[in-house]
Design a protein around this nucleic acid. Structure first.
Lengths: 202, 202
DNA sequence: CGAGGTATATTCACTGGTCAGTATACATCG
DNA sequence: CGATGTATACTGACCAGTGAATATACCTCG
């Protein structure tokens, strides 16, 4: 059976990831993925039952690395809670300025497959976002924020909103605007005793 | 010359709109649009130079109606500015609960065509969102808000974020969360003298 | 008025190419 | 030997766009 560490499987997944993220799902043929991975299509179909399977695997492979990255940006940021949240947006804005940036793979896949509501890739995308939201909520709750759940949802809305808007306008400054809005909302939600003098950035 | 009121052209555009919104761009063939419009493919190509042209026309046709609708929701809402902004989200949440709702056509098209940065449809989508943002900014400025520009951008982020998140989770309650965040941000931005007692909704 | 022409609008049938997925066979290795 | 993995070559469906012909409406000039 093909293990997840299987080198051929990994090669396929790497190629699929690069192409699906860069071009979109329906724009990329299975032939193109196989060629890019340096194998034949039949070999690809030996490792993945169908293209839909491959798409789901592409997103599944991005789940953990993405979450880990976000958490690291948060953990390594200086300052109080609002600053640490804003740091995520700051790092994202930097990434969004790279010419190969194409928004959030999870959201773009969902948008493209919106006519197939039960598609496994969409479920993986939804689960990914839920995990991120749950982590935020827990972080906020630990900080003594009463409305941790609502605040986490607001952060998610700003985050995913900035993915969409920045992709549309190709203007990463929206991501910084989102970061400032996030900072303000977190600041306002902090319990009074923990609230430092609100420092307007810039 | 084919006028915009041309009945055949309108039929094509109606069919294209329905199909592209429901299924996505690349998932819908030109044949499918033609059949749905009750004409032959060649007739479609008489009225539109290419599929890309048709896609652009589909979005262009949605531009004004969408803006008008949003403005009407705002104008007809009771209450002060924060409530009027929140009303847009409330109406949108209601729309999002309809089974045929598939998010924002502009954003989904942009996401799907993200590998074609100069595509005319993307330009139309970007212009549409800019118009909405400009209208919001003007409205906020008239209300005496100093940071009208930044606030308008924040509203856009929340709005487009809720399109993305609600489409992903198929849970329209995120749109109400976005509305509450929008209300809070507008409330906080109002000049003191105009600020009524902030009323937490619910 | 009316015959002939011209631009508009539409149809059927087709092309060259791509797509997801498969049948069959060959190889490698424990 | 036989399980795992890979390759060549194929299938039937679909796709964007086109060629050639036809119908309709209007306009010009005898």
């Amino acid at each position: 059976m093909a293990r997840s560490s299987d080198p051929t499987r990994t090669r396929i997944l790497t190629a699929a990831s690069r192409l699906f993220y860069a071009e979109g799902i329906r724009a990329v043929s299975v032939d193109a993925v196989a060629e890019n991975a340096g194998i034949t299509k039949k070999t690809l179909y030996y490792h993945f039952r169908s293209k839909d399977d491959l798409v789901a695997a592409y997103l599944a492979a991005r789940d953990q690395p993405n979450l880990v990255l976000f958490k690291r940006w948060f953990d390594e940021a200086e300052g109080a809670l609002p600053d640490k949240v804003a740091a995520i947006f700051r790092h994202l804005a930097k990434a969004a300025r790279h010419p190969k940036w194409r928004g959030c793979g999870f959201l773009r896949t969902t948008a493209e497959l919106a006519n197939l509501p039960g598609h496994p890739a969409i479920k993986i995308g939804a689960a990914h976002k839920k995990k991120f939201e749950a982590w935020l909520q827990a972080t906020f709750a630990e900080a003594g924020i009463e409305s941790a759940g609502e605040l986490a949802r607001q952060m998610l809305l700003l985050l995913d909103g900035s993915f969409a808007v920045v992709l549309l306008h190709r203007d990463a400054s929206y991501m910084e605007t989102a970061g400032e809005a996030a900072r303000a909302l977190v600041q306002a939600a902090l319990p009074r005793r923990m609230r430092a003098a609100p420092q307007r950035s810039r």
